[in-house]
Write a protein that binds this DNA or RNA. Structure first.
Lengths: 177, 177
DNA sequence: GCATATGGTTTTATGATGCAACCACACAAG
DNA sequence: CTTGTGTGGTTGCATCATAAAACCATATGC
């Protein structure tokens, strides 16, 4: 059920040496692993928490700053990075103040399953689950949501062992040949 | 040169002061948000990639090291942290070599949905999806898996907007003890 | 114009990360 | 038993990111 020896896929993650300062932070920008690519965008300490607050409706710099209790410079850097990655975008106004707001793009809202997965992992495995303050519920019924489930094309519930990785079929030059 | 005046670190910000070196990395250990609690354990650059490789069957220090291309000291630190968090555990042997292996615990295998969510987010929103090399497929049929879906207790498919957070009902002072 | 709140940037300090070098141990050869 | 090599890891140092505070710029109100 599991190939213990060499796998062909993904043989050798290399860090992208940028110019000459290759002691950077091992960027995963050019990596072929989609997990690594996600982490490149939202794999740092604060990004997912900022996104989480944004999903809950926060929009203003000061809201994030006071809610998350983080330093303003860090927040500014994270917001800029999230905007650069197309996860947030700045909207010029909303409440009259000529300041700007940070709102989630579709890509940003698309992180919701990631946050749910993180939440459910805590709920399932945390050593002190009693310290978890909130529950994600179905808004309509007020009942806890089900666990995320992975299904096959035909609807069968899949565990990790029932899945495997395949190479993408066609590197596809450019149109059909 | 000009020594700046005494730094008053105890400014009253929220951060979890551990012992006395409170300029650490803003640990989320005591946070009540389950997302933050997850990130505390696996929210750094390497942990999820190590877990990913472990899910694919890697067990040995050298396997991780050559596969991920990371420095050995970083790997050692991450492995230790993952063991401390109950995500990996060390098994004394397997192939005769008197060395140890790192195998996933149930808690570690429980991260699978997180990795799937990260993967699917990349697949859906990455700017250069053609660089993604692998596809997660149903092992039996060889067909791509469906997107993770969040459902209500009664099976209704839920979007983020159809969910909300509720406070945990009972803080429960250790009942019946 | 001046006080204050908001929204950042700059400065400075510390911790984390990255890499190389080194060390400890196991195993094999001589 | 000694040497050699591969594995598994630690130590040192350079560099980078992060953190906190101070500072600055723009808005808004009086």
């Amino acid at each position: 059920m599991m190939q213990p020896h060499k796998r062909v896929i993904d043989a050798g993650i290399r860090q992208t040496q940028r110019d000459e300062t290759m002691v950077k932070r091992t960027s995963f920008e050019g990596d072929s692993c989609p997990v690594a690519r996600s982490l490149e965008a939202i794999g740092d300490w604060w990004s997912l928490l900022i996104i989480r607050e944004a999903l809950l409706g926060l929009r203003r710099f000061g809201e994030f700053q006071s809610k998350l209790g983080m330093a303003k410079n860090i927040l500014a850097a994270r917001l800029r990075s999230l905007v650069d990655h197309g996860i947030l975008e700045t909207a010029p106004a909303s409440d009259g103040s000529a300041y700007q707001e940070y709102v989630l793009t579709p890509k940003g809202r698309g992180t919701f399953p990631i946050l749910v997965a993180l939440r459910q992992w805590s709920e399932a495995f945390d050593d002190r689950p009693e310290e978890i303050a909130t529950i994600l519920v179905d808004r309509e019924k007020g009942r806890p949501v089900k666990k995320l489930e992975l299904r096959a094309e035909d609807g069968r519930l899949l565990t990790q062992a029932e899945t495997t990785l395949k190479l993408r079929p066609a590197p596809r030059r450019r149109s059909a040949g």
